[in-house]
């Protein structure tokens, strides 16, 4: 059993790995090499790491790997379906009708308490529907979702404004779900349990995605919204953990977790 604190008088294994990978600056490299030159224990470890590194590069074809990565990165873009794209189809009409019924039933209930759900401002509540065939099912946002699920948000907001919906996933990818590029961006009236325009088909990026709903005094186009949000933090992962954005809007967020089917 070696789940215990280590003696830290030697460079860490991680540091030695970075030394071999050429990832240290001159000062770090000098200090580390000086220690290793006079430490047989670290010399041995360095040799083991070197063998491991060479073994990795021998058994992995970098060019093939990167070519596959590039192909996959370009082919796995998020697919969105706007609510009007959904509604013209017969099944979509049924789904919309089912959703309205569900909303009427749901409007007398409270959303489940969820530690990953953050509401800022007075009385904003964000909930989630999952479309299953022609049925719109109210679901707990913290329940695991799967790639390919079609979801739609519903919102209770005591006052209206310009609505914006965006998500950030664990790959750090920001996606604006509303407003859609080039589409009209009318003021949202507020009220109880209204569906947020635009359904979304979840892409195949697994893990968490935080979705923010912002109700602002001014409308922001998708590009402008992305720029504003990116300016808040250089690290997209911080936005994922942020729960709320430093923007002058009333807002709510919910954390969705996607798992493979």
């Amino acid at each position: 059993m070696t789940i215990q604190l280590r003696n830290e008088e030697h460079p860490s294994r991680h540091l030695l790995s970075r030394l071999l990978a050429g990832d240290l600056d001159d000062k770090e490299r000098g200090t580390t090499e000086k220690h290793v030159s006079s430490c047989s224990e670290c010399k041995d470890l360095l040799v083991r790491i070197k063998v491991e590194l060479e073994s990795f590069h021998t058994s992995h074809n970098k060019e093939n790997f990167l070519a596959q990565v590039k192909e996959l990165a370009e082919s796995t873009q998020t697919k969105h379906l706007a609510w009007w794209q959904l509604a013209w189809r017969p099944a979509g009409l049924l789904a919309a009708a089912a959703m309205i019924v569900a909303l009427m039933l749901f409007s007398i209930q409270h959303l489940p308490e969820d530690p990953d759900t953050r509401m800022k401002g007075s009385g904003i509540e964000l909930g989630l529907f999952v479309m299953e065939g022609s049925e719109a099912k109210i679901t707990d946002p913290s329940q695991l979702r799967h790639p390919g699920d079609r979801i739609q948000f519903h919102l209770t907001a005591p006052a209206g404004g310009y609505l914006h919906l965006l998500g950030i996933d664990e790959a750090g990818v920001l996606s604006v779900y509303f407003p859609r590029p080039g589409a009209a961006h009318e003021s949202y009236p507020g009220g109880a349990a209204r569906p947020v325009p635009g359904s979304v088909i979840l892409d195949d990026t697994l893990g968490r995605e935080r979705v923010f709903v912002l109700i602002c005094a001014e409308a922001m186009a998708p590009d402008e919204l992305l720029a504003r949000v990116r300016s808040l933090s250089g690290d997209p992962q911080q936005l994922l953990e942020a729960q709320e954005l430093d923007l002058d809007c009333r807002q709510a967020s919910v954390l969705i977790t996607k798992e493979a089917k």
Binding site: K70, L72, E170, A171, G172, L174, T205, R230, G234, D235
Partner: peptide, 14 residues
């Protein structure tokens, strides 16, 4: 790496 590549545009080096 796929995720990193997709998110590379938003990496600001902070």
């Amino acid at each position: 790496f796929v995720r990193a590549m997709r998110a590379a545009d938003s990496f600001r080096g902070e």
